[in-house]
Amino acid sequence: MTAAPPSAEDTAPIRLGTRGSALALAQSQRVADSIAARTGLEVELVTITTHGDTSPEPLASIGGAGVFVTAVREALLAGECDVVVHSLKDLPTAPHEELVIGAMPKRADARDAAVVAGGVPLAELAAGARVGTGSPRRRAQLRRRFPELEVVELRGNVDTRLARVLGDREGVAADLDAVILAAAGLERLGRDDAITEHLGIDGWPTAPGQGALAVEVRRGTRGPLASALHSLDHSPTRTAVEAERAVLRLLEAGCSAPLGAHAFLDDGMLFLAARVYSPETGEQVSSAHALYVADTRTPGEDAAALVVDELLRQGAADLAPLGGAR
């Protein structure tokens, strides 16, 4: 019997929707290359302009990182593209009725990184030194560990933020002594040479899902794209990130909450730790639990439930604006 020739749908270029920022394009291109290698098909990047990209208003005032997620999701649902890529730390934790995360590629470095003028450690900065960050969690961590430093609200893309320290961009004044950024983003942009210090996860737990990507498609996607995403999915990353994001969801907290969480797998066990901070004082409460993955059908959910219950018993809901008090 002669095999049926491939359909036009199975041989058409795959359209990958992405924001137009340098970081979004860099991480989307990596996913596009992986899909192309697995399917043998051309993968085209489709740039999606969002309100967050064009608005002069601060990001928080127009809906935070959710404005970017909403725009690319709308393009996917409208059929303008076949697949989109998100930074997982920006993605809402509630499942979408019409979309699914087809793959979580292997996670990059989950740590935060400091870029400090002169290359000195954060701990050696003089009192009153100005450190920039746009993250409530990072602000709380800095205030707790280095109360003598001045924490400055920071906006703009990665290159603009780096220029506030390095002075290497025309029209941007070098008016800060340091900035704190995600190590993974700097690496994806080829700017990891600017890092002067990696901040350890134990002392500086990062946002749930930091360093990981979500490759999202319409529910029911089939064919070469679905097969490629199944191959691209990294099971340990998915298990760990789902546990971290379950903490966020069970606390009913948004992606900008002053909360750090990190999970990892080792020898069949899932380890999950989380910490909630007061954004004003840096005061914190912490919890950590572990369980055998094989002992439950939902290891991430079960580990997160243990962690969240302990956080709430310690008063997490009184420290930060969380909706999970019960």
Rank of each mutant, 00 (worst) to 15 (best):
D177E: 14
A8P: 01
D302I: 01
T18K: 07
F146W: 05
V293K: 08
A226R: 14
L122M: 11
T281I: 11
F146C: 00
T70R: 07
A113D: 11
H86I: 07
A127P: 01
L311I: 10
G64T: 11
A253P: 03
H51D: 15
L88M: 06
K89Q: 12
D202M: 02
G300I: 04
P92F: 10
T49H: 01
H234T: 15
G64N: 06
M104W: 07
P299W: 13
A257N: 09
T196Q: 10
L199F: 13
V285G: 03
E9L: 15
L259G: 03
V116H: 00
V276I: 14
G167F: 12
S227A: 11
V120T: 14
P92C: 15
L162E: 05
L23Y: 12
G40Q: 13
A4S: 10
L91T: 15
E310T: 05
E216A: 02
R30I: 04
R130I: 08
G203F: 01
T49K: 04
V120F: 03
R249L: 12
H86P: 03
I201S: 06
T50D: 01
K89S: 15
V67L: 07
I14T: 08
A194W: 09
V307F: 00
P236V: 15
A117K: 05
T47A: 08
A274S: 08
D53T: 05
